[in-house]
Amino acid sequence: MSQSTSSGTAVSTARTPTAPIRAGSAPVQTSRRAGRSRRSRATSLLLHGTLIVASLVAIGPIVWVLLSSFKPGYAVQSTNLTLVQDPTLANYRYVLFDTSFLRWLLNSVFVAAGTMGIGIFLSATTGYAVSRFNFPGRRPLMMVFLITQMFPVAILIVPIYTIMARLGLINTLPSLVIAYLTIAVPFCSWMLKGYFDSIPTSLDEAAALDGCGPFATFWRVVLPLARPAVAVTAFYTFLTAWGEVAYASAFIQTDNQFTLAYGLRQFVPQYNPQWEYLTAAAVLVTVPAGLVFLFAQRHLVSGLTAGGTKG
């Protein structure tokens, strides 16, 4: 995998900037597009070949798990390499009906949607304040955001547990929402701040002249322009909450409060995993995340751009 892609890198570096000479300043997109006609057949083949191999590596494991989830238990654990063997829905039936699947799904949706909604709001206001106002404490706040990313959660989970217990939040879903916000909001604020930086401040000024207060400026003018970055934030916060297991295993104690990710891990014994159920469970956990992804993916690149560059 690494070999094919590294050769691809060399090729692409050799060919990237084949923009022809143009009068005036053409936008990036058009000037690059003109390179197409110059690409030789061999290069084109190599380019697509590399990308196809990379795509196969990217989706291979997912497809393999998906295929395995339709096999009966003995076939999952057989040494013969088969793509489809005695397809059955038994694994799904077990996961869906012999566990509290629906309950867990609802819990997860509640936690993920809560984290997403509150997370977007908090990171947007924070990102905007850090981007537009030069207030005392601005730089330390940015540093703090970075430090929170260094927090070894697995190790320091006990003091956090103590606080949750003191707040009476143990075994409740809001405890998870709060915990996930601490993971997601710093990174999202940082990303949104970068995106807000790329929106001209003259727009804010115009809005202020038209009589918008600072909040109205933010809410009605800047935020709608930042839609790609908001989409990425939504994706990131959702995913953080959807797949997290460590906090869930620490804070949640009863079956009816499990999140999907934690619940589906539960019924798989630690030493003798039942792979056939596990594969079905993995597919079921991934599908909603995949749906959110499909919704957000159009915006991923432009949304993350400024966030990544402006740090």
């Binding site: 990217a58 990710a261 993995a282 995340a289 995949g290 959110v292």
Partner: peptide, 15 residues
């Protein structure tokens, strides 16, 4: 290609 290559991101880490 872009969708396929980004897809692993959408899979929860423990999965």
């Amino acid at each position: 290609y872009r969708v396929l290559l980004v897809l692993p991101w959408a899979v929860p880490a423990f999965v």
